[in-house]
Design a protein around this nucleic acid. Structure first.
Lengths: 349, 349
DNA sequence: AAGAGTATTGTAAACGTTTACAAAGCCGTT
DNA sequence: AACGGCTTTGTAAACGTTTACAATACTCTT
């Protein structure tokens, strides 16, 4: 039913090839022929059939993005913003964006297989890189174009963009130490995520640079959701020897910690300092506003997508390993100087 | 480079048609032939070329989902959860999901044109329906399959799923009235969104059913983000005659209101009651936990997607107009009975 | 006026499937 | 032995593009 090149060709009495050329505008066509074809196409309401074009060109003009979700109720403002950045960048370059959500695990790689082997996409965006990340190993082995948001611990080379979690967390921790804190708890993300290690290393480095030791009882692990932050927060704060400060390795967990603090009868910013990482919009509006480390998430989405697009154009990336310096955002959740924490604080301080 | 049907045919000495049939399993093929082909395919690592298949079948096996974003920094947990629901349902039925983000406006319809005219997708999901929604008008005119999350004020018939915002908001407002509140402010979403009207009607109906009048000075409009909620909250609460309760028409704005209340020196749950709508995960962890109306967002995503899939199978929907009864979730943000509000409260109570 | 060069157009193959139709082989029945 | 029916396979067209190559027509030289 839709108009095809053949229909136009019949109408203007030219061959299908000439019509194709006139419309694509790449090869030489007589000016009047082109105008004839163009107006006929417009009149008839012609729109190219992208599937036919894709089959012919052996390209899908589509990018793939698999969002790793933990649990069915997945609701992370971080990803919606990243998605917006990626999506807009792709759209501006006339690429479609194929999105799927999948929990890490055996089914996840199947999803990647589907996209790669059946050639549903031209390139992939990989986020939340993991230790010995099987996705990266697979894509490299298949020599499939991709760009990662996050580094890897594999001994391989691939294009990525990452924020310097080590520096960011180190700066943040130093800020707390400068405020007089000595017992600073830390809520890490799952250890298989590469950024968890980087950020934790930054935390520990700051402690050690100040002659403090990393107290294992003050380091707990959460799943990055607000709920996990809440649980971790209770574990850390509803006890006698609560720390005077808590750093969560992302904002969502930090918000959970703030909620837990409240429940444990502690006033954030006064009785206990809380800090996060990411600077999601809600951080500014938390009560009190949350000290955090800013990642320009939307821009990161755009950049990582732009790198992939350039890769697909056959460009060789001038800088395939981008490391962004994050920015410390000090707000009132770490306001009070030298909060004391629980009983033990005096001893350790 | 990739293995094609032709390659397999050459290898096993059969025609390409037989190979195709053996693999698809729809028509009769001799058992031994099938096994021969199957093992050859597996051995050679055959994967069908989906673009070729799509061209042939004149179907894309792809669903489209355009997320309407307001502003570049788009970060709404509501949408990430909806996306997860839609995506998982689509994936289970072997459909791809094409996602793009676009602000409402003239460019938005172009995006829909792209998807529809160039046949990039088989069907569309439309969310955040608007008054005289041009997307719906367009899709109906083109007779393009779609399902909406949200109703319309157009005088047309189309399949949709919606929550009963009127009832939900009416119940919520009644709850506040039962708590003794008389001056209840309301923060609406943009009026061109259909659900804004429904929810507001529910709010007003509850007031009127209790002999209260809707005070225009207590109704303000926000853009649905936490920041807008914050601004609206300041406008309502940082004044002499602050209301004793504030309802925001979504949770994200309600969180902003809570932040504003704090800044205006009011304690949420004691000096002022605050309520939202959606029950995003963060609502439970707000301080105090936020009273709200629950929408099973993930499930809604799945259902709305499932409706579309059935439509594409040629099924006639037994129930093309689904209205879900939302559930009131009472938490501590509306805890204190008969909060009094500012000076004027006594007069109006 | 013939030839070279250029601009424009047409022919046909290719991309990798699916499927209508035809053909071939085999079975049992009469 | 001939025939109808069934199962299995092959042939070829179709889906709608793009593009290499060939063909034609025109312009400009000499």
């Amino acid at each position: 039913m839709p108009v095809t090149l053949q229909d136009i060709a019949d109408r203007v009495g030219l061959s299908i090839a000439t019509v194709s050329r006139a419309l694509s505008g790449t090869t030489s066509v007589a000016t009047e022929t082109r105008e004839l074809v163009l107006s006929a196409a417009a009149e008839m309401g012609y729109h190219p059939n992208v599937m036919a074009r894709r089959l012919q060109k052996q390209r899908t003009d589509t990018l793939g993005f698999v969002i790793p979700t933990f649990g069915p109720r997945f609701s992370d403002p971080f990803f919606s913003e990243l998605l917006a950045g990626i999506g807009n960048e792709a759209a501006e370059h006339n690429y479609d964006l194929l999105v799927s959500t999948c929990a890490p695990g055996p089914k996840e790689l199947q999803g990647y297989h589907r996209l790669v082997e059946e050639r549903r996409v031209d390139g992939l965006l990989v986020v939340r890189t993991r230790r010995r990340d099987p996705r990266i190993a697979y894509l490299l082995e298949r020599e499939f174009p991709f760009v990662a948001f996050g580094r890897s611990d594999l001994d391989v080379d691939f294009p990525y963009l990452d924020e310097d979690g080590y520096q960011g967390m180190r700066t943040l921790t130093q800020h707390l130490i400068d405020q007089g804190h000595r017992r600073i708890a830390y809520i890490s993300g799952p250890w298989e995520l590469v950024f968890s290690q980087h950020r934790f290393d930054g935390y520990r480095a700051a402690l050690e640079a100040n002659g403090l030791t990393c107290d294992d009882s003050l380091v707990v692990t959460g799943c990055l959701t607000d709920m996990c932050g809440y649980e971790a927060g209770r574990e850390l704060l509803c006890r006698e020897d609560w720390p005077s400060a808590v750093i969560a390795c992302n904002d969502l967990m930090a918000l959970g910690v703030m909620s837990a603090a409240q429940e444990c009868g502690l006033k954030v910013g006064q009785d206990v300092a809380v800090a996060g990482f990411d600077d999601i919009p809600l951080a500014k509006l938390a009560q009190p506003p949350l000290t955090t480390v800013r990642q320009p998430i939307y821009q990161i989405g755009r950049r990582v997508c732009s790198m992939l697009l350039r890769l697909l154009q056959g460009e060789i990336l001038e800088n395939p390993h981008v490391l962004l310096e994050p920015e410390l955002i000090i707000r009132n959740s770490t306001q009070k100087i030298a909060a004391k924490g629980g009983d033990i604080a005096d001893r350790s301080g």
